[in-house]
């Protein structure tokens, strides 16, 4: 079970950990970011070579288009727009995870085990929530949507109802062998998109950085769950590292701003939050 690929995966995962560690200290941060980038480049090449798909032109074309777009976007953005840029990029990553899950479900649902079906549906849902939630966060920070928390009537009830339906759909599609799986998967994706919107519009502009950090953790988690579906240990490991370190960073940021995550997600404003909780 432990072959060359698994060993390379462990080495690259450790590199990612080292990169994140270095990024948390001012002196070594630049270096840490570059180590992370190197590890990812190596991971892409290893995965292409290991799966024998390094000579597929379509993949290189996609990498080229994405790479050029990403580079231009990153160079053009002004420093003051950085938080919304990070939110936007994070959303794209979540969207990519959701699309991978969708492709896997469309192509292989019939042959999938219970584990594959469950993780595929989960990755679809978490990825879609990350996508729409991050886009709303970016739009709020960019003042395209009001920075004030938008709270609908019965907001909590609606969110929970949507979440419950998503969970039921995931369970149904995993346990039963459904013939119209494509349709179910698309419904799940749309509900998850709606949930992401409901989740993010409720948060005030000042609290958005913390929400983005949480969504960043989600996108790592979505990647890791995708890794379960396609049975890739490297994707599982790196996704889990990002998911967990994103979560701890969210906690650190909450502490620094003297806010509780529950207050932020329920859309309570800054002053009322401080009155309620002293953390």
């Amino acid at each position: 079970m432990i072959g060359t690929y698994e060993i390379v995966s462990i080495v690259l995962s450790i590199l990612v950990l080292v990169g994140i560690k270095l990024m948390s200290s001012p002196k070594t941060a630049v270096q840490g970011n570059r180590i992370g980038a190197m590890a990812m480049l190596a991971a892409v090449i290893v995965v292409l070579a290991y799966n024998g798909i390094i000579d597929v032109p379509l993949l290189w074309f996609a990498i080229f288009v994405g790479g050029v777009t990403g580079y231009i976007m990153a160079m053009r953005v002004k420093m003051i727009q950085m938080p919304q840029m990070v939110a936007l990029l994070n959303g794209l990553g979540g969207g990519a995870s959701a699309l991978v899950a969708l492709v896997e479900i469309f192509e292989r649902y019939k042959q999938m085990t219970l584990f594959g079906r469950l993780t595929g549906q989960l990755a679809l849902a978490v990825g879609a929530v990350t996508f729409s939630g991050s886009l709303i966060a970016a739009a709020k920070l960019d003042r395209r949507i009001s920075q004030r928390p938008i709270i609908l009537k019965n907001h909590g009830l609606i969110s929970n109802a949507v979440l419950l339906i998503i969970i039921l759909l995931i369970i149904t599609a995993s346990v039963a062998n459904i013939s119209g799986i494509g349709f179910i998967a698309i419904i799940t994706a749309f509900l998850a998109l709606a949930y992401g919107v409901l989740f993010a519009i409720r948060v005030g502009g000042a609290d958005m950085p913390i929400t983005i950090s949480l969504l960043n953790s989600f996108s790592g988690l979505a990647g890791a769950i995708c890794g379960f579906t396609i049975e890739d240990p490297l994707l599982v490991a790196v996704g889990a590292i990002v998911g967990a370190s994103g979560l701890i960073l969210t906690q650190i940021m909450c502490g620094a701003m003297n806010r509780s995550l529950v207050d932020i997600l329920s859309g309570s404003q800054l002053n009322s939050g401080i009155n309620k909780k002293e953390t």
């Binding site: 990612v16 990169g19 994140i20 990024m23 941060a29 840490g32 970011n33 992370g36 980038a37 590890a39 990812m40 991971a43 892409v44 995965v47 990070v86 990029l89 994070n90 990553g93 990519a96 995870s97 991978v100 990825g127 960043n216 996108s219 790592g220 979505a222 990647g223 995708c226 890794g227 579906t229 396609i230 890739d232 490297l234 994707l235 790196v238 996704g239 590292i241 990002v242 370190s245 994103g246 960073l249």
Partner: peptide
């Protein structure tokens, strides 16, 4: 930085 690494989903 960790957001960039979450682009690891490219492997999938």
């Amino acid at each position: 930085g960790t957001n960039a690494i979450s682009g690891v989903t490219i492997l999938g």
